[in-house]
């Protein structure tokens, strides 16, 4: 039988990031200020990198010269000679391990706090945040003795302590994500025939992926950039990039090496950040020009 439902094509559809959406357009002085602020922020982030990059390839650069007097690979050669490659390997391994352990733990803690009746939930929340309040120096000095007595290998000790320091970030990010997550959508999936595992893989995980990526990135940064715990608990056996940079910076005449290592240390987090940014976009929840135009009759 014939049935006419309102097709509703007259409703204009646009997303905040689409051209023409009135919510995000600024006009007049606001627009000028917005652009100027963006440029100032870009400058703020990029300016410190300019001398860093110049120094990295300067074999000789003495005052009062504005630019290096001699360009070359001396800094790179020195960095390699001091063990830059193993140090990068250690840092990467530390970052990935901390991320791999702290992210699932954060997920479990957040899920428990969001969905289950946790005894003394406020106290648990404070405990999860406590590492942020406790200086790493204090924790490392205090626990180092314990770890030594328990014969915990230095590398395992470092990973263990850094994981504790990453937990506030991962649990917080996931807590916020679970707070916004709608369990009714999961129930709907169950009734449509999905088993609990299928609900997890096909509904929960894709919906929480952006938050998971953010949490994992923050945990990686904790492992990647740590100095104090690696030095104190690692006892000098684990040389990571921050340790190498600090060591080189403490000496004289190593400006090129320090600059090169510091600049290079920015790359892995930057690559990950871009990855997180891409993952942060919901898989096909976002409209594309093709999906919008391709189906309009």
């Amino acid at each position: 039988m014939a049935l006419t439902l309102p097709p509703e094509f007259s409703t204009p559809l646009s997303w905040p990031d689409q051209p023409g959406n009135g919510l995000r357009t600024s006009q007049g002085i606001t627009r000028v200020l917005r652009i100027m602020l963006a440029l100032a922020l870009a400058l703020w982030f990029l300016l410190p990198l300019v001398p860093l990059v110049l120094w990295a390839f300067a074999d000789r650069w003495s005052f009062p010269a504005v630019l290096p007097q001699a360009w070359g690979w001396e800094g790179a050669r020195a960095a390699l000679a001091q063990g830059a490659i193993p140090a990068f390997g250690h840092s990467l391994l530390l970052g990935l391990l901390v991320s791999a352990i702290a992210t699932p733990l954060g997920v479990l803690a957040a899920r428990a706090l969001a969905y289950h009746r946790v005894l003394f939930a406020p106290a648990v929340n404070v405990m999860l945040f406590a590492p942020l309040a406790l200086p790493a120096f204090v924790a490392a000095l205090g626990l180092n003795v314990l770890l030594l007595r328990l014969h915990v290998p230095p590398f395992a000790g470092v990973v263990l302590l850094l994981t504790v320091y990453a937990l506030p970030y991962t649990s917080y990010v996931m807590r916020v994500a679970y707070g916004a997550h709608d369990l009714a959508v999961e129930e709907e999936a169950r009734l449509l025939g999905a088993s609990p595992w299928q609900v997890m893989w096909r509904v929960q995980l894709p919906l929480l992926a952006p938050a998971l990526a953010r949490a994992a990135f923050l945990a990686f940064l904790v492992g990647w950039s740590d100095y104090v715990i690696t030095v104190l608990v690692g006892g000098g056996t684990i040389v990571t990039v921050p340790l190498l940079v600090a060591g080189a910076a403490a000496g004289t005449g190593n400006d090129a090496t320090v600059a090169l290592l510091s600049a290079a240390a920015l790359l892995p987090p930057l690559v990950l950040l871009l990855g997180v940014g891409l993952l942060g976009r919901r898989p096909s929840g976002k409209p594309t020009a093709k999906s919008m135009n391709g189906n309009l009759p």
Binding site: V185, E188, A189, R190, L191, R202, L207, G285
Partner: peptide, 29 residues
């Protein structure tokens, strides 16, 4: 179990899966 009862529910909110397009939402079951 709920997924084996041969039932489906439509609620006041559509509760569509935001990460799937319209067709994949319907194809979910």
């Amino acid at each position: 179990l709920p997924e084996r009862r041969g039932m489906a529910m439509v609620q006041q909110r559509p509760l569509l899966f935001p990460h799937l397009n319209v067709l994949d939402n319907i194809a979910f079951a």
